[in-house]
Computed example of a mutant assay.
Amino acid sequence: MKCPFCGEEDTRVIDSRPADEGSSIRRRRQCDKCRKRFTTYEKVEAIPLVVIKKDMTREPYDRSKIERGVFRSCHKRPVSVSKMNAMIDKIEADIFNREAKEVTSNYIGELVMNHLEELDAVAYVRFASIYREFKDVDTFMEELKKILDK
């Protein structure tokens, strides 16, 4: 592993331990040349997943797109980053547990909405307004009525 500080090729593992509930390994390393320490994570490489978008184009799965949508929806809401990340981990687990090589963006969007609805109603409505492309106030009000009826 190359040192991120000096670029030296030789580094030593000082400590290893499980991370992310056993789904990855956290390694503490030290550079033999500059003696600085840094952390690396090893994760099992997942099956490459392709997302089929609404216009039928295909692109590689990108977790950061889900993160951006969730973080924007939860902006200025009483939802901790750890809760958001835990929710995103669950969504990602649902996606990969299907063991399919392709998944529709619609499926991902519905998963996000289902989890957001449980997490925070306002964040859910924010996400739904973009995802479902509300055209007018009436459509927005219909979605709000669904939440209020529950």
Rank of each mutant, 00 (worst) to 15 (best):
P78N: 14
P78G: 09
R63C: 12
F38K: 02
M84F: 04
Y41K: 05
R68K: 06
V70E: 00
T11W: 01
R28W: 11
G7T: 01
G7A: 07
A86L: 07
G22N: 07
I14L: 08
C6G: 13
A19S: 10
G22S: 08
S64P: 08
R35P: 11
R63V: 08
R29W: 11
Y41L: 03
I47D: 11
K43Q: 10
S24M: 09
S23C: 03
R72G: 09
P4Q: 08
Y41H: 09
H75T: 11
M56W: 01
I47L: 08
D10A: 05
R17C: 15
D62T: 08
S16V: 10
R35G: 13
K53A: 00
R68I: 07
D32Y: 08
R63Q: 15
V51P: 03
D89W: 13
E59D: 08
E21T: 02
S82V: 04
E42A: 04
P78I: 05
R17A: 09
R68G: 13
D15N: 06
A46P: 00
S24G: 14
F38T: 01
R63D: 13
V81W: 00
S16H: 02
C31Y: 11
G7Y: 05
F38E: 01
D32E: 14
I88D: 01
L49D: 06
E59C: 00
E59R: 10
S23P: 01
C6D: 13
R28K: 11
K65S: 07
I25K: 03
T39M: 06
K54H: 06
Q30R: 11
G7L: 10
K43L: 15
R35M: 06
S64N: 12
D10P: 00
A46R: 10
S64L: 13
Y41V: 05
R17T: 09
F71Q: 00
F38W: 07
F71L: 07
E21I: 02
D20C: 01
C6Q: 15
K33W: 11
M56V: 09
R12W: 15
I52L: 02
I52H: 02
E67V: 14
D89V: 01
K54F: 05
K83R: 14
M87Y: 08
M87Q: 09
M84G: 02
V70C: 01
A46F: 05
D55W: 03
I25R: 11
C34R: 07
V79N: 09
K53Q: 00
R72N: 09
R72Y: 14
R68T: 05
